[in-house]
Structure formats: structure tokens, C-alpha cells
């Protein structure tokens, strides 16, 4: 069996994750109002994509697994966005 993902790729993923963690911490010291949270969660989403794509092999898995993953993420986004759209629009 060949290795679809090399140790070098794992190493770069690892370094990328550490770099993104550092940038999360450093960005936090800048007062950007509500954008602090948006930036932090945005960077976290990038890190999650890196982990899923390379460490969890999501990029090279069978199509059915990628369908399950995409489906799960979409349901989670529905949960968050529909509920928050209610809370945000209550004061309108």
C-alpha cells in the first residue's frame, strides 16, 4: 500500500497549526470589538480544515465519507444560523 499522505505533509500541517495558534493569541491583544471573536473563530475553522483534510485524511477518503462529513457540517451550520437569525431579528 502506498501512503497517500507523507510525513512531510504531516509536518507542514503541524507547523501550520502551531502558526495559526500563535496568530490567534497575538490577534487577541488587538482590540477589534466584535471582530476579535469573528477572527478567532475564522482561524479556528481554518485549523479544523487542516486537521480534517490532512490528519484525518478527509481529502483522500471515499466519496461517501466526504458526503457524511459535509452533511454533518451543513446540519451544524443550520442549527447555528437558523437559531441566531431568530435571536438577531427579535429586536427589529
Amino acid at each position: 500500500m502506498t501512503h497517500a499522505i507523507s510525513r512531510k505533509t504531516y509536518l507542514f500541517t503541524f507547523l501550520g497549526l502551531l502558526g495559526l495558534t500563535l496568530s490567534t493569541t497575538l490577534l487577541g491583544f488587538v482590540d477589534m470589538g466584535p471582530f476579535n471573536m469573528i477572527a478567532a473563530v475564522g482561524i479556528a475553522a481554518c485549523k479544523a480544515c487542516l486537521i480534517a483534510a490532512f490528519f484525518m485524511h478527509a481529502l483522500i477518503e471515499a466519496k461517501v465519507i466526504r458526503v457524511v462529513l459535509t452533511g454533518g457540517v451543513i446540519w451544524f451550520l443550520i442549527l447555528i444560523s437558523f437559531t441566531l437569525s431568530d435571536y438577531i431579528s427579535r429586536s427589529w
Binding site: T21, T24, T25, L27, G28, F29, V30, D31, N36, M37, A40, V41, I43, A44, K47, A48, I51
Partner: peptide
């Protein structure tokens, strides 16, 4: 954990 770190630790850092 990556998401927990982002939502709990960062916002009050400044």
C-alpha cells in the same frame, strides 16, 4: 478544543 480555545480565551485578551 481548537474551537473552545477560540471562543473562551481570545475575546477578552486585549
Amino acid at each position: 478544543w481548537v474551537f473552545l480555545f477560540a471562543i473562551f480565551y481570545v475575546e477578552g485578551l486585549h
